[in-house]
C-alpha cells in the first residue's frame, strides 16, 4: 500500500545544527527505503513564510501570502512510501527524526487507476544536450 507521511512540527523546534543532522538522518532513511523498493519520494519544504495560497471564489482568483491555516505546528515535509501495511508505515514513521519533536501523520494514498507516471525534472534529450 502507498502511504504519505506528513511531517508536522513547530518550525523553531530545532536549531540549524539539529536541522542539518535531521537532513542527514532522513536522507539515510530514504536510502534504506529505496534499497527495499519502498521509496516513492520525499522532500522537506521551505518554511511557511514562503507559502502562497490560491483560492477561486465566484470565478475570481484570490492569491494570498501564507499557509492554509496559521497554526503553531506546520507541514514541514513529506515522504511517499510503498509498504505492505500500516504497521510497517508506523515503523518507518517512528524512524524519522521529526517524530521526536513533531508529529508524523500517516495517510493512505487513494489509488486512481489512470494517473500517469511522474514526470522527470527535464526532458531526457534536453538534459543530454546540456551535458554535452
Amino acid at each position: 500500500m502507498k502511504y504519505m507521511l506528513l511531517i508536522y512540527g513547530t518550525e523553531t523546534a530545532i536549531d540549524e545544527d539539529e536541522r542539518q543532522a535531521c537532513m542527514v538522518e532522513s536522507t539515510a532513511v530514504c536510502h534504506d527505503l529505496a534499497a527495499k523498493g519502498q521509496f516513492l519520494g520525499a522532500s522537506p519544504l521551505h518554511p511557511v513564510s514562503t507559502a502562497t495560497s490560491v483560492r477561486i471564489r465566484e470565478g475570481r482568483k484570490l492569491v494570498t501570502d501564507g499557509p492554509f491555516a496559521e497554526t503553531v505546528e506546520q507541514l514541514g515535509g513529506y515522504y511517499l512510501i510503498d509498504v505492505p501495511n500500516l504497521d510497517e508505515a508506523i515503523a518507518v514513521a517512528s524512524k524519522l527524526p521529526p517524530s521526536k519533536w513533531g508529529t508524523v501523520e500517516i495517510r493512505p494514498i487513494y489509488v486512481l487507476d489512470d494517473i500517469p507516471e511522474p514526470s522527470r525534472n527535464e526532458p531526457a534529450e534536453a538534459g543530454a544536450d546540456l551535458r554535452s
Partner: peptide, 14 residues
C-alpha cells in the same frame, strides 16, 4: 480496510 491495518500478530517488540 483503507488505512491498511494488517490481519497479523504484531512483532514481539510491538
Amino acid at each position: 480496510r483503507d488505512a491498511g491495518i494488517p490481519f497479523e500478530l504484531p512483532e514481539a517488540d510491538a
